[in-house]
Design a protein around this nucleic acid. Sequence first.
RNA 1: GGGCGAGUGGCGGAAUGGCAGACGCGCACGGUUCAGGUCCGUGUGUCCGUAAGGACGUGGGGGUUCAAGUCCCCCCUCGCCCACCA
Length: 830
Amino acid sequence: MSEIAGPPDAPRYDWRAIQQRWLPVWEKLDPFRAGGFGEGKPKKYILDMFPYPSGDLHIGHAEAFAIGDVIARYWVLNGYDVLHPIGWDAFGLPAENAAIKRDEHPADYTYANIETQAESFKRYAISFDWSRRLNTCDPSYYHWTQWLFLRLYERGLAYRKASPVNWCPNDQTVLANEQVVGGKCERCGAEITKRNLTQWFFKITDYADRLLADMAQLEGSWPERVLLMQRNWIGRSTGAEVEFVIEGRPEPVTVFTTRPDTLYGATFFVVAADSALADELCAPEQRAEFDAYVQQVRRMSEIERQSTDREKTGVFLGRHAINPVNDERIGVWAADYVLADYGTGAIMAVPAHDQRDLDFALKFGLPVRVVVDTGAQDPAVTGVATAHDGVLVNSDAYDGRRADETIADITADLAARGRGRAAVNYRLRDWLLSRQRFWGAPIPIVHCERCGEVAVPDDQLPVTLPDLRGGDLAPRGVSPLASATTWVRVTCPTCGGPASRDTDTMDTFVDSSWYFLRFCSPAYTEGPFDPATVREWMPVDQYVGGVEHAILHLLYSRFFTKVLHDMGLVDFNEPFTAQLNQGQVINRGKAMSKSLGNGVDLGMELDAHGVDAVRLTVLFAGPPEDDVDWADVSLTGAGKFLARVWRVCDDVGVGEPASRGAGDLAVRRGVAHLIDQVSGLVRSYRFNVAIARLMELTSLLRKAIDSGPGAGDPAVRAGAEALTVLLSVFVPYTAEDCWALLGHDVEGGDLVARSTWPAAEPELLIEETVTCVVQVAGKVRARLEVPPGIDEDTLRERALADEAVRRSLGGREVRMVIVRPPRLVNVVPL
RNA sequence: GGGCGAGUGGCGGAAUGGCAGACGCGCACGGUUCAGGUCCGUGUGUCCGUAAGGACGUGGGGGUUCAAGUCCCCCCUCGCCCACCA
């Protein structure tokens, strides 16, 4: 006890010195090479979503990569051959915008940031295999992005079509549906408008069913909400396609409906105002009104268009359709509440049973006919459409039947008459992948006057970017590549005649849809990846990243994987076996942002508190999925704990290697229990609780040293060794230094990072006695120390004999006794 | 408007239906120290009580159960996702 304060020159925990000491040693020993540490080990592929190189790492990276690092290090210590790679998602708009501003090449900005981030990752002690770095903007990478594009093109999965697309007037580019958030550009926040342009698409809709069905194998290992978001995004609905004859048009027009049972209630017909069909169907006398309406719709931004409480607008087209079930003539209207790119762009309107149709009918004085009697009041009067189950009325032969039970029969009747069929529709649209931007992979297609679209032959890949910089890249409505005239002009690979390159580049989500495969063999030159290494490592065992990619990136990667599967290039059909979404790091309840001025600088935190304190803080703050509020955490608290651990190891110091089965029994038992718990907690990613247990282990050892068997006890040494290894997954610097304090030759290669995860001695996990709680009427009134194997009758007797229990019963008769040996007895009085 | 999830001390958070609040932060007190910090120790849900002890307690209300933070129903609040998808 007298040594607690220690002499004034006692060694102190100095994280700065520790970081300086071990970082170079790790760099030299390069301890995380996948495949580099013995043959025949089982394999694990742990992948963090790769970063975008804008500036240095921020505090969000600190949390995400700390989580991935714990998992990777855990498997290394458990004898696995672990692939834990790092690369950069290096194409994209910010680099291009920076290049315009600074009058330089986007590559300058990009590669400088990549180096900065790489250095930060090293300082942050992430256990990457540094030999596998890749950047999606390297020609050696986008060579194969282009190659994959061509394979999709060959299979008819990449195609060009004119369509109304999302246009960002600020970035002067088109965007995928997925990049439009609330009617605004996901990147710059500008309001999106629609433009009719010829664009490249991937036919992801061909895979809608499989993308949906294969989620069954992800159940339980992907976050439920991510699966749900994907399901909703794919948006499968079942119903029927119904053909409506339009007077004066030879071909009927097909509509999709989920409610064929309400066909008798269709009182008008609506086509999307901005569709070619509307233009075609418009009668001459309505032309002027229609054109004015379309103009008005086109001018509207997505924001206005999507506002929910907007009044319905539309225009009568002067034509009529024939309802196939009752040959009724119904008016054909154009309206913007019908979407051109969902279903067939045309609907049958059943105002009595669809709120949108009812709003429209009431606005334009169109008839409302109830065909499902739900007992509710007339929708035409209440203004509330009834869509619930009920009995059909006004429906000829179907009258009196429950509506939902007639769906199949009505569909079958239509099919028998060649007027319809059962059908499935998806909310999912094809993936618009072309961008009118410079800093991306050029689309490897040549446009020839004679031959049309011609794929660039494989042996001419990669199609590298021309050397444009600064002002060359300023947005002007067409791709900057178009201004590189000598680059654009080529000879046609097929006929040798004059041709021009496609000047669009690919969405950066194309780059990131296959990078996890490239990591298996990043230097491979015969294809995008070496199939043999992919067989070894893929699929990814644990993917870690932000929930902001729950739809886009994950859906696209799943799609690419399925296409590659169909091409016979991979033998699995889901790329990520398990997925973990870390929470955000926020400050004072809000996401960090420049405008709020609540940003926290990671570099400054690392300088002030050290790498380990930051890592420990983000991991201890709560469950990995939860947000961490920087205002609620204590970096000094983390630092104090690390110093405490370090002093324990310093006190134990160098000594004989701990031998199993020696030393103080109580310490051995306590250590064994905590090893056992921490192992389970780390495996189930409950890092905050695991760290809490390690704090208990540290206190246990502190007490053992100060007032127990002392620092020299073999059980205390074994405990300190175990503590160090367990902690090393969370705080690698401190653990490495503790390992050295305990006498390991770290410089000589005996790294804690490559030691062995401790095992709890099973015999020590069996308790001598356990505490049994005795309740009277559900309230705890006594505790008994009992043998763990105590039988029910003995336990009941002992409980009923207990003085406190009898006092609490106060002479009342016992109605029943619930006995759950060895932990609980509940005595229930009358 | 639809869907999903969450509400536990002053705070972050623990708790296979079986001792609510582990662990930490903060705070208070004591020791160490010239002092501050560090470090060591003790205490810390609320209320009543000097104490022993007792009562209450996981957003609100009901239910199932010997036993509910945990399961079921209703309500309130907050968060996230989608949003005219026929």
